[in-house]
Structures are given as C-alpha cells and as structure tokens.
Design a protein around this nucleic acid. Structure first.
Lengths: 243, 243
DNA sequence: CGTCAAATTGACAAGGCTCAAGTGCCGTGG
DNA sequence: CCACGGCACTTGAGCCTTGTCAATTTGACG
C-alpha cells in the first residue's frame, strides 16, 4: 500500500532535475517520499472541485486533464498532462481544490502526502525551486490557453493545442518524433478549445484535407509538423522548456 | 533614482504578510530591497513579450494588465492588476517574457532587481512561501479565465470578469464596497473576454437595462452586487483570499 | 453478434463579428 | 473661454462562424 519512490518513479526525479539541478541529497529525499500508487480507469475523477486535498497526485503513466464546469454543466479543460507530470502541487498551499482532475486514459497515479512534500520543500531548497518553477510553467501554459480560446478561430485553436500537446510529449520523452497517435477524443478536444465536438469534427476534416493531420476517427496524428506549427502560429517559448 | 522601500511600499509587506505570515526580519529584508520608481502614462508597455527581463515590477498605484497578441494582432488580456500587485514574479526563474505587461491608467510602478529578489527568497523562506503562494493564486485566476472565455456567453463572461475585478479591489482595500467606478474601457473589457468592443457595448446595455450595472460610458459601476454575482455564477473560492 | 461510445454528416438557428456612420466627452491649444 | 481634435462610446444592417438538433455510421470489445 505504501512504499518508497523507486524504479519507474525516476520520472519525478528526472522532471525536477530538469527544472532545477538536484544534489544527491535532494534525489535521496525525493526517493524517500512515502507514496501510494493506484491504477485508475479512463475517466476517473481524481480530485473534485471544492474538495479538501491532503495528497499530491503524480501521473506515472497515461494522460490526464484538469477541468472546471460552468453553471450549465459544460466542461472546460484547463490543461492536459502526460506521464511524469505533477497534477496538483498547488495544494501545497491551498487546502481546497478549485478545479477537477481527471484521467483521460487508464493511468497509474502516485499519491504523496502533502505534509511530506512540505517537509521536503522546507529542507531541500533546490527541490522547492524546481517545484516552484514547475508552477510557473503551468501558469504560462494557462496564459497561452486564455489567448488560444479567446482570440483564435476554431482551426487555430485546435491546431495550436495539438502542437503544444505533441511538443510536451516529445519533451517528456514519450515520443521521439511528433508523429505519435493522439490520445484524445473529439469531445476532449472541444472541451479544451471551447468548441463543440460536432464542430471539432468538421475542423479536423479540414485539417486532414489540408494535409496537416492524418488518420480518421480515434487514431489520428500529425502529418506535417512544420506546416502545422506554422499554421497554428505555435512558438514554444511559453513552455519554458529546459535546453 | 534608487532608494529603500518605505512609506507607501507597505503594500508589498502587507500583501506578502497576508499570503504568509512574516517575521520582523522578513519585513526588514523586504524594506531593504533596492528599488527604482517610475510614473508611467496610461497605455505604457512595461514589459514586452520575448524581452529579457532583469527586474520585477510592482504596481504601486493605478491599474495594469497582462496580455498576449495573436498572429493577426488581436490582443487577449490575461489578467488585470491593481495597486499592490506583483506583476511579473515569474522572471525570478524565466529570463525571457512570454507576455506583455501594460498599465491601463497612469500608474506608479516600482522596479526591483531580480538578483535582489533571488537573494531575498534564498534567505527568507517565509517570503519565498508568500511569493510562491502568490504565483499559485495567479495561476488559479488564469484557470478561471480559461473557463470564462471558453464556456460562458458574452453576458456571463463580462459579468464574471467584473465580479472578479471588484472582489479583488475590495480585497486590496482599494474600495470599501463593490460600488467603485470601474477603470476599464469597453475595448479592455472585450480584450479580456475574447469579444469585440462593439459587442461589449451591446451587452453592457443589456446588463444596465437589467439593473445589474449603472452609469453609461466611461463611468460605470456595479448597481446590484448580489444579483450580479448570482447572474455571473461568481464564486470567489478560486481567488484563495486569506480569511 | 450485440452493445455502446465515439465519430460523422446534414439542416437550420443564433450569437457574435464586420463594416460603417454617427455621437459625446474631455483635454489641449489658440 | 471657446473651438478643435481625438478617443471612446453607440447604434444599425448584414454576414459568418459556430452551435443545436437529429439521424446514422463506425469501430472496439465483450
């Protein structure tokens, strides 16, 4: 039920080390974190808005998203997450969740008690810096999403979102090249871009006819990375990826 | 040209103290920060996207916003800021700006060298926590804006944005009650909500006819705070205001 | 082979945009 | 003190992107 971080959990060490160089002591401290692992079915809500939260979720495999609901029940996805991502470090300081966290696919998730993370942060400044930096990258991505949803048309929104997703997957070493099969349904794409799934379907067809993406239905991927980037006006600076 | 923080700059101490209790030593360290003050005319761009940044801006008086531009030049406002707000603490870790910062009104702005802030943060963990928490509040607001722009109609977007703005002004002690005159033009409202200023004008008229706001043109304010909150589905939890 | 979720497509409606023409307010300069 | 200029506001007409509703098809999986 509870074990130390090890093996596959190098993902957290690797991620934080990429954000801010860690010492061997930092790495040991991370690996000593108490952890609870669970395998979750696609669609499971890990954290619900307004809920009191005392653990931090770490995505080990699969894909997840964060979302909020409008009064009429419509869902807005706020961000996508891939294996290795920290899903809710904000609960280091907030006791109550302001949004939902949900896995998009079957996924392995690790839960770490916030009290342990608070100790870690207090005793390991380099880890604190890495986590803080991760929060700032998240915030930068949220800003880009406000622009995306607020000021781009449907084709621009969808293509930009796909570019970001693929770029982040490549950065996370989940794929060597941008030609990976994309894991989201058209409903997820719509909820992420502020569109309906019906309209997403129409726009994806246009993108396919333009040769920017390929493959129909549930297995589609990027066909021409460079042209899609250009079409989407995708400039990756806001991701603040380490060199 | 350069002086210690004092007098009116209690705003920073007050803000950080509200985010995380500070010791007298923390307060002294903040007050000893080197600072450069400037008075800027309405519309001045303080920081431009892609620019290298070595100072942190602090808003002393007036109002400011952060924004990004789409390929076609359309502007999307990402957040509004009021006196006392820290405008770009993210440059503690990012050397290059990923968005623009602009004053909406004539404003007094303080510039603090990032190197001094990095020292402050290294030596004063409670200050670091306060600043980190501030970043997390910012991020939470960005998330709400993604929802606002993505899943609410024009009237919902505008009224929700107004509620947030007023709530934050009250929290910052800029107004006792929510009946303050709002400082933004219809173009700013449109750029913040992903609408055109023409449509903002029409929706404001509807809100006025519904008795939710009052006053035409450049001097309008909230007429019925409780009904507006309800209409906007405004729940302030995401602002994570200290009790 | 049956079932169910997701994708697909068409017809129609509507919310918001564009273009265009004013109006009103306020600071500035004569 | 008044006239002028500029910016923001206001309003209308028509269009267009996207949403809504509904029916059908496809594909995965038990």
């Amino acid at each position: 039920m509870s074990s130390a971080l090890s093996g596959q959990h190098h993902s957290l060490v690797r991620k934080l080390n990429g954000l801010n160089g860690l010492s061997p002591a930092d790495i040991s401290a991370i690996e000593a974190l108490p952890i609870r692992k669970r395998y979750l079915k696609a669609g499971t809500v890990i954290v619900a808005e307004d809920q009191l939260v005392s653990e931090c979720c770490l995505l080990l495999t699969g894909y997840a998203c964060r979302n909020k609901l409008a009064k009429d029940g419509r869902r807005q996805i706020i961000s996508f997450h891939v294996a290795g991502d920290i899903l809710d470090i904000q609960h280091l300081f907030f006791e109550r969740a302001d949004h939902n966290i949900q896995v998009m696919t079957d996924a392995d998730v690790a839960f770490i008690p916030m009290v342990a993370l608070r100790d870690l942060v207090r005793n390991n400044p380099a880890v604190a810096t890495a986590l803080w930096r991760d929060c700032l990258v998240d915030a930068s991505i949220f800003r880009e999403w406000v622009l995306n949803v607020g000021r781009r048309d449907a084709a621009g929104r969808i293509s930009h979102m796909l570019c970001e997703f693929v770029e982040r997957c490549v950065a996370a070493r989940l794929s060597e090249t941008p030609d990976m099969i994309l894991p989201m349904t058209q409903e997820y794409i719509g909820d992420a871009t502020g569109l309906t799934s019906v309209h997403v379907n129409r726009v994806l067809r246009q993108l396919r006819e333009a040769g920017l993406i390929e493959g129909a239905g549930r297995t589609f991927k990027i066909a021409d990375w460079n042209r899609l980037r250009q079409f989407a006006d995708f400039r990756a600076g806001y991701l603040h990826l380490a060199a």
